[in-house]
Design a protein around this nucleic acid. Structure first.
Ligand SMILES: [Mn+2]
Ligand SMILES: [Mn+2]
Ligand SMILES: [Zn+2]
Ligand SMILES: [Zn+2]
Lengths: 146, 146
DNA sequence: ATTGTTATTGAAAATAGTTTTCAATAAGAA
DNA sequence: TTCTTATTGAAAACTATTTTCAATAACAAT
């Protein structure tokens, strides 16, 4: 059981909620899978280990994970939401390939600094931000594609 | 009739589509309203001048405007989509207030350059990007709020 | 002006994704 | 073990978007 899972258990206790078989499994499966995970995708994975589980439970647990700051929501397309690990993971932005959907995670301290500065100039207090760059990845923009 | 509206008419003709009363009005109303406009909002505005119009027609015209690059879609919350003017409007990013919803439009060439550079380093061809900074605006983060 | 073709329209239905409801069950404190 | 009440899964409800379809209208050709 890793730190994030322990943290979740504590979070649940603190809120006078209850640790259940279902929550344990959803959390374990989520934490065991890096990358961007959709609800359906997580639901399918969980179902393999616990076929009786309901979609609503997975959905609700994902919400708790979000509330506990263990997961964060990303949604590039405006369609299905996806979730990624937040606990023990550094902030990053995304390069998203319009062809293959591949997603490159990037960090650029200079950009982050400039954002801070920009916000400051407008008297704006930053809570979070999202930078997504859409285009074609190396593999998808070989010499052939313009 | 401004340039954008003329451009739209040409766009329609080029695609062997037809200019209708409905389209004319939706386009006029959309172009007459700066800022971020939701579909429902545009629908209501249009209905005032043309009460018989259907939601689907407004929706479809907005899609055509998007295709013609006269409008562009923005969606901060992941809930309802909004549209803003694209024709003759420069690219900009957004500072979004989590309290009042106010939205400040910003441009920062340095950030744009750094994004280009970053993408280049990953062999990534940029098509578009989206930078949204969430937090509290000057008015909403007066001395009182932490 | 009239005709013929076919794009367009509005209402309603369908879809997609998310969120809630509710009665049965189970966590966990006493 | 008992009791309280949080949790569960299935289904229904909700929200926003997209499609269907029969009637209508645009507009090119007469
Ligand atoms: Mn990521
Ligand atoms: Mn804007
Ligand atoms: Zn790719
Ligand atoms: Zn504000």
């Amino acid at each position: 059981m890793n730190r994030a899972a322990e943290y979740f258990t504590r979070f649940i206790k603190q809120k006078n909620l209850r640790m259940t078989k279902q929550r344990e499994i959803v959390v374990r499966v989520f934490l065991g899978k890096e990358g961007h995970l959709g609800i359906d995708e997580l639901y399918s994975l969980v179902k393999k280990k616990y076929p009786e589980i309901g979609y609503a439970t997975v959905w609700r647990t994902l919400n708790l994970l979000k509330e506990a700051k263990i997961a964060s929501e990303v949604s590039f397309t405006g369609k299905k939401r996806k979730y990624e690990h937040l606990f023990d993971h550094k902030h990053h932005d995304h390069l998203i390939c319009l062809k293959c959907g591949r997603c490159i995670e990037i960090v650029n301290p200079k950009i982050e600094q400039l954002q801070e500065k920009l916000a400051r100039q407008h008297g704006f207090k930053i809570r979070s931000h999202r930078l997504e760059i859409f285009g074609f990845c190396l593999r998808c923009s070989g010499d052939k594609n313009e």
